[in-house]
Design a protein around this nucleic acid. Structure first.
Ligand SMILES: [Zn+2]
Ligand SMILES: [Zn+2]
Ligand SMILES: [Zn+2]
Ligand SMILES: [Zn+2]
Lengths: 153, 153
DNA sequence: GAAAAAATGTTATGTTATAACATTATTTTG
DNA sequence: CAAAATAATGTTATAACATAACATTTTTTC
């Protein structure tokens, strides 16, 4: 079983667990995203969808699918760049625990999804608690330059 | 000397240090922001500018001023909400060192700007370094609920 | 099979941000 | 000082991102 099939299988599983339906549109949108590991904007995904599945598709179609996929934790939305990307955990064994660090490369547009060390996010929580602040989102986005772009072979 | 005056004075100082000019528009935009401690969108600031200074002002006018003020570290742009806010350090003695944590309340829209503990951001950097990633931005945004909104008196 | 719920289609609009070029103001320099 | 260069602002247009509102279709429930 190849990687994409495994990811699709887990998408089905996550839908089942959430009691939601995996409709063709939703599956197609994820399919397109799987073929494009770099984060993409909703309108880029819309263009791909129009090319491949339905030239008459409208923004709402893609936004609905993306919102759905995000709800069931199959994809993430990157707030700082307004892009969407498949969750790195999809099709693997482990799942999200604690905080996530998104490392966004400003040169190549690439993304690395990293599980934050527990000690670190506990400190972040502790620091927030000083101000009686309770985080509900569990991800931070850090911009910079990735290894590839710093040391081009 | 009241708080706003102190902040304005430091704005002048930071312009001088950066070798940039503090023009009326730039000063007026900061003035408006000082009167509104909550983060605001560029278009909200534009509306205020139109009401108070020039009904014919266009988006570019405000965006240019905001970009300038951000360059000289007088204001911050919050990537996740696309809002602008005066830097908490303006008019105080200390300045930015290391990383900043923005605590954004999803209920009231309020913001707390926090200096991240050195131990924490060093760990963040170390974790990024594992992936040969070099951060260049130095702020993270954490969404949640602030103390006020959790414990309404 | 009728009623309710979920998903999709469709049109319109709201929101955020920049491109491109003209004009004006300020600074530099000969 | 006057010409040239630079910086700032004015102005128009448009790109890019996202949702509201309502109609229609599909699926589920009873
Ligand atoms: Zn993930
Ligand atoms: Zn890169
Ligand atoms: Zn600040
Ligand atoms: Zn609050």
């Amino acid at each position: 079983m190849d990687t994409h099939s495994r990811q699709m299988a887990q998408l089905e599983e996550q839908c089942r667990q959430a009691g939601k339906k995996l409709t063709p549109i939703r599956q197609q949108v994820l399919q397109l995203m799987l073929q494009h590991p770099q984060p993409q904007s909703a309108y880029e995904i819309l263009q791909a969808y129009q090319s491949r599945y339905n030239p008459k598709a409208q923004p709402m179609t893609v936004y609905r699918a993306l919102n759905f996929l995000e709800e069931i934790d199959a994809v993430h939305r990157l707030a700082s760049t307004r892009q969407y990307v498949v969750c790195d955990h999809l099709g693997r064994e482990h799942t999200h625990h604690g905080f996530t660090q998104f490392l966004l490369c400003d040169r190549c547009g690439g993304l690395q999804e990293v599980e934050m060390e527990q000690a670190v996010w506990q400190k972040l929580l502790a620091e927030a608690a000083i101000y009686h602040f309770t985080p509900n989102a569990s991800a931070i986005e850090i911009h910079g330059v990735c290894g590839q772009c710093q040391n081009p072979a």
